[in-house]
Amino acid sequence: MSTPEPLQAPLRRDAAPRQGKYMDRQPMSTWAAYALVGVGALFMLAPFYLMFVFATHTRSEIFDLPPPLWFGNDLAGNLKILTGLLPFWRNVGWSLYVALMSTALTLLFCSMAGYAFALMEFRFKKAIFALVMATMLMPSFMKMIPTFLIMDALGWIDTHRALYVPGAASAFGIFLMRQYASTAVPRELMEAARMDGCGELGIYWHIVLPLLKPALGTLGLITFISSWNNFIDPLVVMRSVGNYTLPLALRSMQSTTNTEWGALMAGSAIATLPLLVLFAIASRQLIAGLTAGAVK
Rank of each mutant, 00 (worst) to 15 (best):
residue 10 P to E: 11
residue 165 V to Y: 06
residue 183 T to Y: 09
residue 188 E to A: 14
residue 28 M to C: 04
residue 17 P to H: 03
residue 217 G to V: 07
residue 207 I to C: 06
residue 62 I to N: 11
residue 276 L to C: 15
residue 63 F to C: 00
residue 127 A to T: 15
residue 256 T to E: 14
residue 265 M to L: 08
residue 196 D to P: 06
residue 75 L to C: 02
residue 154 L to D: 08
residue 92 V to H: 04
residue 265 M to G: 04
residue 9 A to G: 04
residue 247 P to Q: 04
residue 115 Y to A: 13
residue 75 L to R: 01
residue 36 L to E: 01
residue 101 M to Q: 10
residue 130 A to K: 08
residue 95 S to K: 01
residue 108 L to K: 14
residue 149 L to C: 08
residue 183 T to S: 14
residue 201 L to T: 09
residue 221 L to F: 05
residue 89 W to Q: 02
residue 66 P to Y: 08
residue 117 F to R: 03
residue 48 F to K: 00
residue 36 L to A: 09
residue 265 M to N: 09
residue 247 P to D: 03
residue 148 F to R: 00
residue 187 R to N: 15
residue 9 A to W: 02
residue 26 Q to S: 10
residue 290 L to V: 01
residue 211 L to D: 11
residue 115 Y to D: 06
residue 90 R to S: 12
residue 69 L to G: 12
residue 139 P to T: 00
residue 267 G to V: 05
residue 219 L to F: 02
residue 86 L to P: 00
residue 101 M to A: 14
residue 63 F to L: 01
residue 72 G to A: 12
residue 54 F to W: 08
residue 280 A to P: 05
residue 170 S to P: 02
residue 103 T to N: 05
residue 132 V to E: 00
residue 5 E to H: 11
residue 56 T to C: 10
residue 118 A to T: 05
residue 81 I to L: 11
residue 189 L to P: 12
residue 194 R to S: 15
residue 289 G to T: 05
residue 202 G to M: 07
residue 218 T to K: 05
residue 287 I to F: 07
residue 276 L to R: 15
residue 258 N to A: 13
residue 210 P to L: 14
residue 212 L to H: 08
residue 147 T to I: 11
residue 240 S to Y: 07
residue 87 P to M: 04
residue 286 L to R: 09
residue 49 Y to W: 15
residue 213 K to F: 12
residue 52 F to L: 12
residue 142 M to E: 02
residue 104 A to Q: 00
residue 47 P to E: 07
residue 259 T to Y: 08
residue 20 G to S: 09
residue 26 Q to F: 12
residue 126 K to G: 12
residue 81 I to M: 13
residue 38 G to P: 02
residue 100 L to I: 15
residue 70 W to H: 11
residue 172 F to E: 02
residue 56 T to I: 11
residue 33 A to D: 07
residue 232 I to C: 08
residue 117 F to A: 03
residue 267 G to P: 06
residue 27 P to R: 01
residue 248 L to P: 04
residue 295 V to N: 08
residue 250 L to I: 07
residue 251 R to T: 09
residue 119 L to D: 09
residue 252 S to Q: 14
residue 196 D to W: 04
residue 205 W to R: 12
residue 94 W to R: 15
residue 255 S to A: 10
residue 194 R to G: 12
residue 243 N to Y: 00
residue 238 M to D: 01
residue 99 A to Y: 02
residue 271 A to H: 13
residue 231 F to Y: 15
residue 263 A to I: 06
residue 293 G to V: 13
residue 224 F to Q: 01
residue 239 R to Q: 15
residue 11 L to R: 12
residue 113 A to W: 07
residue 64 D to S: 14
residue 146 P to N: 14
residue 98 V to K: 06
residue 85 L to W: 11
residue 130 A to T: 09
residue 286 L to E: 04
residue 41 A to W: 10
residue 158 D to S: 02
residue 258 N to W: 03
residue 249 A to E: 05
residue 161 R to P: 00
residue 50 L to A: 05
residue 234 P to T: 10
residue 15 A to V: 10
residue 151 M to F: 04
residue 82 L to Q: 03
residue 128 I to Y: 03
residue 209 L to S: 00
residue 258 N to C: 01
residue 284 R to C: 13
residue 269 A to H: 05
residue 175 F to M: 03
residue 164 Y to K: 03
residue 17 P to K: 08
residue 139 P to G: 03
residue 243 N to L: 10
residue 244 Y to N: 03
residue 30 T to Q: 13
residue 214 P to N: 10
residue 57 H to Y: 06
residue 118 A to M: 09
residue 193 A to M: 06
residue 234 P to L: 10
residue 190 M to K: 05
residue 188 E to L: 10
